[in-house]
Lab assay of single mutants.
Amino acid sequence: MFYPNSPQTSPQLTQIPYGQQYAMMQRQIQQPYHPFATTEPQARLYPYHYQGPIQQEQGGFITQQSTAASPQYVQMRVTPVDQSIMSGYPNQTANGSSSSSFNYNIHPQQQQQQQQQQQQLRHHAMPVGSVPLQDDRYRKQLIVNYLAPDVTSTDLHELFSRFGELDGARIIYDKQTNMSKGYGFVYFCHAEDAKEAVERMSGYEFHGKWLKVGYSTNPLNIVPSNSSPYVHAGSRGAAG
């Protein structure tokens, strides 16, 4: 039997160049792979992502010199942007860049009308829970959420009447099932009393439920100042 490094198959040491006398086997001759043993700084910083320098080929596509990437890492192929796409944008300079302001050559009167329309939209648009300043009635009506099913309009009136005089209180019921929808409205005579009720009743436990109280901004629920107070009856038909 002959071994790869046996004296019968191995040459004389004098015939082997210096430095390879003890590297006779194939696994010894093959050098191990060192990912950080390279002179390129990109490979030292990113050993798993770097795959060699990027070269520009004919046709405008950018390719990489090395083989496919590892399945664990996804390499994105980048193509140059066609400058003709950006030619339609206004205020574009000769080098292809555009300024931040756009001039669509709008007539001054049209621009003024658009600004007025935007101001009107901001004036009428009102986020949930906010209180408008032009109508004091919005500051007097509250919406009470997360009410228990057994709470009546009379219970709601008695709960909030300790903060001040009320114009009314009612629970909203479903017309088909005649069941409470879980929320109601309270109408105060003074805005200061309503503000105190919002601050003190939010998070209050009532009939096993934690109440959420806020201003009601729905104009359909506003009680006119010259109208008669609501009837605080315990029956659902009268309260709904």
Rank of each mutant, 00 (worst) to 15 (best):
Tyr18Gln: 15
Thr39Asp: 04
Ser202Met: 15
Ser180Cys: 03
Ser161Trp: 08
Ile172Gln: 04
Arg77Glu: 01
Gln21Leu: 12
Asn218Ala: 11
Asp82Asn: 12
Asn91Arg: 11
Ser130Trp: 00
Val128Phe: 12
Glu165Cys: 12
Thr14Leu: 13
Gly240Glu: 14
Gln75Trp: 15
Lys175Met: 06
Pro224Gly: 09
Val81Trp: 10
Phe102Tyr: 09
Thr177Asn: 14
Cys189Phe: 00
Arg27Phe: 15
Tyr73Asn: 08
Ala68Trp: 08
Gly52Phe: 10
Phe206Gly: 06
Val131Trp: 01
Pro71Ile: 11
Tyr46Cys: 09
Gly234Cys: 06
Ala148Thr: 04
Met126Tyr: 15
Met179Ile: 07
Tyr3Ile: 07
Leu147Met: 00
Pro32His: 00
His190Trp: 14
Arg236Trp: 11
Leu45Ala: 09
His124Tyr: 01
Gly60Pro: 10
Phe102Gln: 13
Thr39Tyr: 13
Gln51Thr: 06
Thr79Val: 10
Val78Asp: 13
Val198Arg: 10
Phe61Tyr: 05
Gln134Thr: 14
Ala169Phe: 13
Pro127Asn: 10
Arg44Ile: 12
Ile16Lys: 04
Pro90Glu: 00
Gln114Cys: 02
Ser202Thr: 11
Ser161His: 11
Arg77Asn: 15
Asn218Thr: 01
Phe2Cys: 00
Val144Cys: 02
Ser87Gln: 10
Trp210Val: 10
Lys212Thr: 08
Met86Phe: 12
Thr39Cys: 13
Gly129Arg: 04
Asn218Phe: 01
His157Glu: 00
Gly240Tyr: 14
Val78Lys: 13
Ile171Cys: 13
Phe163Cys: 04
Tyr22Ser: 13
Thr38Ala: 10
His207Ala: 04
Pro127Met: 04
His124Phe: 01
Gln119His: 05
Phe2Ala: 07
Gln117Glu: 08
Gln26Lys: 08
Met201Ala: 06
Ser202Arg: 03
Tyr173Val: 04
Gln134Met: 00
Ser228Arg: 14
Arg44Ala: 01
Leu211Ser: 09
Glu205Cys: 14
Gln42Pro: 03
Leu121Ser: 08
Gln92Glu: 15
Ala194Asn: 13
Ser225Glu: 02
Gln30Thr: 15
Asn5Asp: 11
Phe36Met: 02
Val213Ser: 09
Cys189Glu: 11
Ile54His: 03
Gly234Asp: 07
Glu158Met: 03
Ala69Ser: 08
Glu199Tyr: 02
Gly19Pro: 06
Lys181Thr: 03
Phe163Asn: 00
Glu57Leu: 13
Tyr146Gln: 09
Asp135Thr: 05
Gly129His: 09
Glu196Tyr: 13
Phe102Met: 02
Gln72Ala: 04
Ala194Leu: 12
Ile54Lys: 02
Ile222Pro: 11
Tyr48Arg: 00
Arg137Asp: 00
Gln111Tyr: 15
Pro47Leu: 14
Gly182Ala: 05
Phe160Asn: 09
Met24Asp: 14
Gly182Lys: 15
Gln20Glu: 02
Pro108Ser: 04
Glu57Arg: 05
Ser161Gly: 05
Arg139Pro: 02
Ser225Pro: 05
Ser216His: 12
Val213Glu: 00
Pro90Ser: 14
Phe206His: 01
Trp210Glu: 01
Pro53Tyr: 04
Gln15Val: 04
Leu142Glu: 06
Ile171Gln: 09
Pro32Glu: 12
His207Arg: 09
Gln28Arg: 07
Val144Leu: 09
Gln8Glu: 09
Ser216Asn: 00
Asp135Ile: 07
Asp155Gly: 04
Phe2Ile: 12
Phe36Gly: 09
Ser225Cys: 06
Tyr50Pro: 09
Thr93Tyr: 13
Leu45Cys: 04
Lys209Ala: 05
Asp82Ala: 14
Ser66Lys: 04
Ile143Trp: 02
Leu121Asn: 11
Gly182Met: 14
Leu121Ala: 12
Glu40Met: 11
Leu211His: 08
Gln75Pro: 09
Asn105Pro: 03
Arg77His: 00
Leu220Tyr: 00
Val74Lys: 11
Asn103Gln: 03
Asn145Met: 07
Gln117Gly: 02
